[in-house]
Simulated assay, not measured.
Amino acid sequence: MALVVAALAVGLFANLHRVDHASCLVEDKDRAAVDGGSDMRVYTDCGIFRVKDSLFLMRWDSADVYQGIEVGESYDFETAGWRVPFLSWFPNIVAAEQVTR
Rank of each mutant, 00 (worst) to 15 (best):
M58A: 15
T100Y: 11
R83K: 14
D61K: 10
G81V: 01
A33K: 13
D61Y: 00
W60M: 15
Q67A: 15
V10P: 04
R101N: 09
P85Q: 08
S62Y: 01
F56P: 07
E97S: 11
V84D: 02
V42Y: 06
V42F: 07
W82H: 09
D28K: 09
E78Y: 01
A63I: 11
E73T: 06
A32Y: 06
V71F: 05
V94P: 04
W60A: 15
D76E: 09
W89S: 07
K52V: 13
L25M: 01
E97K: 11
A96T: 09
L8W: 09
R50F: 05
D76M: 01
A9Y: 09
T100Q: 14
G11I: 02
V5C: 03
Q98N: 08
Q67F: 10
M1V: 00
A2G: 11
F49W: 00
L3E: 13
P91Y: 05
P85M: 06
A22L: 13
D28P: 08
R83T: 08
D20S: 13
F90Q: 04
Q98P: 02
Q67Y: 09
G36V: 05
W89A: 07
V4S: 11
G47L: 01
A7E: 05
K29W: 03
I69P: 09
P91F: 01
L55H: 07
T44A: 07
A32M: 13
S62F: 04
D28H: 04
R50L: 05
H21G: 02
V5Q: 02
V5E: 12
A96W: 03
A22V: 11
G36A: 08
G81Y: 11
T44D: 10
D39A: 12
D39T: 08
H21V: 07
D39N: 12
A22Q: 13
N92L: 06
M58K: 15
A2M: 03
A95D: 04
A33H: 12
Q98E: 11
D64I: 05
S23A: 15
F49G: 01
R59K: 15
M40K: 01
G36D: 03
F90R: 11
A32R: 15
N92M: 01
E70F: 12
A9T: 03
K52D: 14
L87Q: 05
L25S: 13
N92Y: 11
G81D: 06
K52A: 15
R18C: 01
Q98T: 12
M58E: 11
S23M: 06
L87P: 00
V51I: 13
L16P: 09
W82N: 07
D28Q: 02
A96I: 02
D53H: 05
A96L: 08
N92Q: 00
V5L: 14
